[in-house]
Simulated scan of single mutants.
Amino acid sequence: MTTFNNFADLAAARIQMADARENTVEAYDGAFIEHTDMAKLSMVDEPMAADMPDADMVRGAVELAIGTIFDVLKDTRMEEFAQQIAWGMVNSFHMTARIVERREDDAAKKLGELVRHFDPSEIYAVELEETQEHCQTLQGCRESLEAMRDHASDVYHVETGRAWTATRGSQVSNNGVTASQVNGRDYLAARAKQKRDRLAPEGPMVVVSGGQEGWHDYEMIWEILDDIKARIPNMVLGTTGMRKGVDRMASSWAQKNGVNTVAFMPDRSHGNRAPFLRNEKLVKLQPVEAIVCEGSGIQSNLAQRLRAAGVPLHVRRLKDQMAQTEQSKMWA
Rank of each mutant, 00 (worst) to 15 (best):
T3H: 11
T3A: 11
D19T: 06
A20G: 10
N23T: 12
A27W: 04
Y28K: 05
A31G: 03
F32Q: 09
H35D: 08
T36M: 07
L41I: 08
A49E: 08
R59W: 01
A61P: 00
A65D: 12
A65F: 12
D71G: 06
V72F: 07
K74S: 14
K74E: 15
D75I: 02
M78N: 14
E80G: 05
F81D: 13
Q83W: 04
I85K: 09
G88A: 09
H94R: 11
A97S: 15
H117V: 04
E133V: 00
A147M: 07
V155H: 03
N175I: 09
G176F: 10
Q181R: 13
Q181V: 14
R185G: 01
Y187V: 05
A189E: 14
K193V: 07
Q194I: 05
L199W: 12
E202Y: 11
P204R: 02
V208F: 03
G214S: 04
W215P: 00
W215S: 00
D217A: 06
E219Q: 13
I221M: 07
K229F: 06
K229T: 11
R231E: 13
R231I: 05
R231K: 13
T239P: 01
G241D: 04
K244G: 00
Q255C: 10
G258W: 08
N260C: 08
A263M: 14
P266Y: 03
S269T: 13
H270Y: 15
G271T: 06
N272M: 10
R273F: 04
A274H: 02
K281R: 11
P287C: 10
I298M: 10
L302W: 01
A303H: 04
Q304N: 06
A308G: 01
L313P: 01
K319Y: 07
Q324H: 04
T325D: 02
K329C: 07
